[in-house]
């Protein structure tokens, strides 16, 4: 009876430990509708007079104007004005599924895009036509410098997103992990500054910098793990879990095998 209870407790502890390590080693959370949009299409600009422009206006009025207002002027308390937001803002929000937003006031999170590629292009064009704003950048990671990228990322991005791009706390907001971001999305976010993220113009971070930063972001998806299993790449927390639930657990077990147990040696002369 006692033995069974102990085995049960030991198994529960081991399971809890394994769960803890697994939970920490998981890629961090996204919204329930999480999906990967690996599309990196070429964007052709257009004005709102063309057939695509008409389509864009129509889609906008249907799906976006309730919060962003007709003509994208914004609705107080609901959604910001998109005049001057630029096609990059629309493209980023739509391709990552952040927009349309389910709940006003909540932070927009990555999810399944609600529009198809053609529709997104149309909407991008429409929003871009509302006023001068960042164009969709052409980001080529292979043209960037990895070491420049790491340096820029450390100085500019790591404070929120973490040096390994695994996400972080921003008090009042969540800086998401970057594992699913395409190079274009990285460039767009830098130019646009979505939600509470700061934004950076060409004067501060030029095209070469975008290439370098996105090249580093690409590295963080598959970093150099010369030391073995990476356990989540977030540092001492999973390391501590392994030290306790793998090493100490194993050594306690070995000690138990080596030594005596009270109920068996009690009564030994």
């Amino acid at each position: 009876m006692r033995r069974a209870r102990r085995i049960a407790m030991a198994s529960a502890a081991a399971l809890l430990g394994a769960f803890a390590v697994a939970a920490w080693a998981q890629p961090p959370q996204s919204s329930p509708r999480a999906g990967v949009s690996e599309l990196d299409p070429q964007i052709r600009g257009s004005s709102s007079d063309t057939p695509m422009g008409e389509e864009g206006r129509r889609l906008f009025e249907e799906g976006c104007s309730s919060c962003h207002g007709f003509d994208g002027a914004g609705v107080p308390g609901q959604g910001p004005s998109l005049r001057g937001a630029g096609e990059a803002a629309a493209d980023f929000s739509l391709r990552t599924g952040r927009m349309p937003l389910d709940q006003v006031g909540e932070q927009p999170l990555r999810g399944e895009p609600r529009y198809g590629d053609d529709q997104i292009r149309a909407l991008d064009a429409y929003v871009g036509s509302l006023g001068p704003g960042p164009a969709i950048p052409r980001v080529r990671p292979d043209r960037g410098s990895l070491s420049e990228g790491m340096r820029l990322f450390t100085e500019t991005c790591a404070g929120c997103h973490g040096i390994g791009g695994k996400g972080g706390v921003a008090i009042g907001a969540y800086a998401p992990p970057l594992g699913e971001a395409t190079p274009t999305e990285v460039g767009e976010a830098i130019r646009v500054g979505p939600y509470v993220m700061p934004r950076f113009s060409e004067a501060q971070l030029d095209q070469a910098d975008l290439d370098s930063i996105s090249r580093y972001v690409r590295l963080t998806r598959d970093p150099n793990d010369a030391g073995g299993f990476g356990i989540g790449h977030i540092g001492p927390v999973p390391e501590g879990l392994v030290a306790w639930f793998a090493a100490i657990a194993a050594l306690l077990l070995i000690a138990r095998l080596i030594g005596e147990r009270s109920d068996s040696d009690r009564g030994r002369a």
């Binding site: 932070q107 921003a170 939600y195 509470v196």
Partner: peptide, 10 residues
């Protein structure tokens, strides 16, 4: 932290 929509963000 810089909000693009100050009304509904920190």
């Amino acid at each position: 932290r810089y909000p693009s929509f100050p009304e509904r963000s920190p």
